[in-house]
Amino acid sequence: MKNKTFCIVVFLSLSLLGCKKIQNKLNKISIENAPKSISISDMVKDFKDDKSIKEIKGIQVEDLFYKEYFLYTGNKKTVIEGMNKIKVTEGFSQDCILTSKAELYQSLIESDKNEYTAFFWEFEKLKNPEIYTCTKGLIKHFIIFDLNSDTIYQRAEEIRE
C-alpha cells in the first residue's frame, strides 16, 4: 500500500512539474507572438508631418501573414488622398473605393478578435460607418470612418495568393 501511494505521489508530482513546464513554454510563445506597436505614418508616409492625423493606437500581429490594426482621428479626405498617394513598387495598386460591410466581413476572421485587437472591433458599434477599401502592392486596406466623429479604424493585411 505504501509503495502504491508513493508511486501515485511521484506520478502526480511529475505531472504537475510537466504542466508547469508546458505552461512556461506557452507563456513564452504568447509573449513572443504578442503584437508590436506600429504607427499609421509608417505605412502612410503622407501622415508623418500631418498634424490633423492623431494616432490613438496601432499594432502589427503576425501569424502566417502580417495584419495591422489602427485607430486614429483625421479628416476623411486627407486620409483617402494619403492612401491613394502610396507608391507601389510591386504588385497591384487600386485607389480607395467605397465598399460594403459584407465585403469587409469576408476579409475578417472571428479568431482575430482578442484582447490586443479589441480597440479595432469597436467599429462594430457604429450605426452607419462608411467603409473604403484599397490595395497597395501586396497589402489590402479597409478604412472605416465614423461619420459622427473623426475616428478612423483601419485594418491592413498581406494579400494571400
Results as ranks from 00 to 15, higher is better:
Ser100Gln: 07
Leu126Pro: 01
Ser93Phe: 00
Val79Cys: 14
Lys85Ser: 15
Leu108Lys: 09
Gly91His: 01
Ser111Gln: 10
Lys67Tyr: 04
Ser111Gly: 03
Asn75Met: 12
Glu68Leu: 04
Phe119Lys: 06
Glu110Asn: 14
Tyr69Met: 03
Gln94Trp: 03
Lys101Cys: 07
Val88Ala: 00
Ser100Lys: 10
Gly91Asp: 02
Leu104Glu: 02
Glu122Trp: 06
Ile86Gly: 00
Tyr116Ile: 00
Val79Asn: 10
Gln94Ala: 06
Ser107Arg: 07
Ala102Pro: 04
Tyr66Glu: 05
Lys77Gly: 07
Asn128Pro: 03
Lys87Thr: 05
Met83Gly: 07
Ser93Ala: 14
Asn128Trp: 03
Asp112Ile: 08
Cys96Asp: 02
Gln94Arg: 12
Lys125Val: 01
Thr135Glu: 09
Lys87Val: 09
Ser93Leu: 02
Cys96His: 01
Glu81Leu: 13
Lys113Phe: 13
Leu104Tyr: 11
Glu90Thr: 12
Val79Arg: 11
Val79Ser: 11
Lys113Ala: 14
Glu103Pro: 01
Tyr72Pro: 00
Phe120Ile: 09
Glu81Phe: 04
Tyr69Gly: 10
Ala118Met: 07
Ile97Lys: 15
Met83Tyr: 13
Ile97Gly: 00
Glu103Val: 14
Lys101Thr: 09
Phe120Cys: 09
Asn114Cys: 15
Thr117Pro: 05
Asn75Cys: 13
Tyr66Met: 12
Asp95Met: 02
Thr89Arg: 11
Lys127Phe: 10
Asn128Ile: 05
Phe120Asp: 04
Lys76Met: 06
Pro129Val: 04
Asn75Gly: 12
Phe92Ser: 08
Tyr132Val: 07
Glu90Trp: 00
Tyr132Asp: 07
Ile97Val: 06
Ser93Asn: 05
Lys76Gln: 12
Lys127Glu: 14
Thr133His: 08
Asn84Val: 03
Glu122Asp: 07
Val88Gln: 00
Lys76Asn: 09
Glu124Arg: 14
Asn75Leu: 11
Glu122Arg: 13
Thr99Ser: 11
Gly74Tyr: 12
Tyr72Cys: 00
Glu130Met: 13
Glu81Tyr: 06
Lys77Thr: 15
Tyr69Arg: 01
Lys87Asn: 08
Thr89Asn: 11
Asn128Lys: 10
Ile97Phe: 02
Glu130Phe: 10
Pro129Gly: 05
Phe120Leu: 12
Ile80Phe: 05
Trp121Ala: 05
Leu98Lys: 15
Phe92Trp: 04
Thr99Lys: 02
Tyr69Ala: 03
Ile131Val: 04
Ile86Cys: 00
Phe119Pro: 02
Thr99Asn: 02
Thr78Pro: 08
Lys87Trp: 03
Tyr69Glu: 06
Lys125His: 06
Gly91Ile: 01
Thr89Gln: 11
Asn114Leu: 11
Ala102Leu: 05
Ile131Pro: 01
Ile80Lys: 06
Gly74Lys: 11
Lys125Met: 06
Cys134Lys: 08
Tyr116His: 15
